[in-house]
Design a protein around this nucleic acid. Sequence first.
RNA 1: GGAUGGGUGCCAGAGCGGUCUAAUGGAACAGUCUUGAAAACUGUCGUCUCUGAAAGGGGACCGUGAGUUCGAAUCUCACCCCAUCCGCCA
Length: 421
Amino acid sequence: MLDIKFIRENAELVKSATEKKNISFDVAALLTSDDTRRALLAEVEAMRGKQNEIAQAVPRASSPEERERLINESKSAKELLTKKEEELAEIMKTWYGLMVQVPNIPDMSVPEGKEDLDNVEVRTWGAIPTFDFKPKDHIELCEMHGLADFERGTKVAGFRGYVLKGDGARLVFALSQFVLNELTAEGFEPMIVPSLVRRAPLTGTGFLPQGEEDLYKTQDGDFLAGTAEVATMGYHMDETLALADLPKKYISFSSAFRREAGSHSKDTKGLIRVHEFFKWEQVILCEASHEESVKFHEYLTANSEKLMQKLGIPYHVVLNCGGDLGLGQVKKYDIEAWVPSQNTYRETHSASYFHDFQTRRLNIRYKDAEGKSRFAHSLNNTAIASPRILVPLLENFQQADGSIIIPEVLRPYMGGKEKIG
RNA sequence: GGAUGGGUGCCAGAGCGGUCUAAUGGAACAGUCUUGAAAACUGUCGUCUCUGAAAGGGGACCGUGAGUUCGAAUCUCACCCCAUCCGCCA
């Protein structure tokens, strides 16, 4: 959510943001609604003030007649007030409905574009492997070594179901350990957070109301979050943090659930797109300064790149275009890993910053050096998401005989094992 | 799932229809005293929002939302959360 004052004063900028993000939103309609809201609010408040005045005079009335007169006066004023209040409630509802649709302003450096094809490659790392044999895809490799069971996974869980087993299961735990150690050493606090969450943290992080279709919902009205970011951000909801405690750096684990509504025909096989997976997410809350946000954004990206480098997985970093940005995101880098079987890079990480878009909704503040209360800035980036990461990992490190070299950094967590198969 | 009690400011805690602009402690901050500190004393001490250049002024907020009333922290209803006991249970 943006500050309405900011929207009022920068209407043109907001309008260009909707265009850049390819979101249809009528800024003028919001402004009109806001004018009405403010006018009505002033009226209602003046009437309430009057009402309070009379109510206070009643017990001090000089005579029973005077008392009666005051009560009657108040009664008739009350009728008018009630009517106005209803009008205000109505306009507030409309106003808020529009407010949660206002996109955050993308950074100047965000390229124009409609979809992920328009993203701009920023840098590449690692040599794309050349095979003197026909490389297998991860599904074949999984089946060959019993790393995953898709048939039984589907039997149990339905479409997109999978079961990880053997070294497939071990790899996931090894990756978890690896990531946890690396980021704890970087000063991140590890957390295991709920995936079953209430509406508020999802609205606060910007996944609702727009993304309701993509979320699983329980009969109690709770939701299954698609990322650990939701609960981690919700953790500090309605809090005022101490300046000395900033930046807050968390490395959070949770299961993640995605309905993948509208993606039915995409990546229908294997481990790339699944309904249920595991995520280690980096989350940072920092001071409300653009420079800080930018600094930590690069830092979060660098952290994940280091993990990929230590794993030895070739990747590139792309700068997301405006049309590929979420409602609240100011700027986003995706790390995409090389997937030999598809002869292309596929997204494994996503690093974004939000300024105070999320924290305003979540009411996460801190007192600055002057003692002024301010909304913190928030950022996040994937540390590792599995099993998707297994796709490039298995495919890039496969050998002619189908065996798979285990990255050195994971071996300590695989009982020293160097090779699968 | 059942039963009971409860949610008040940074913390503890009183208030249970009009004097609440929320008592009283404690904490914090500033000052007096002191070589310095402690103690004591004095003062300050919420958030949000509208309006205003500012000073200031108005409004809202006692878990959340609705309601009763001229008037609600106080009464009613629903919900959320916490505590304790019973039941079930990894």
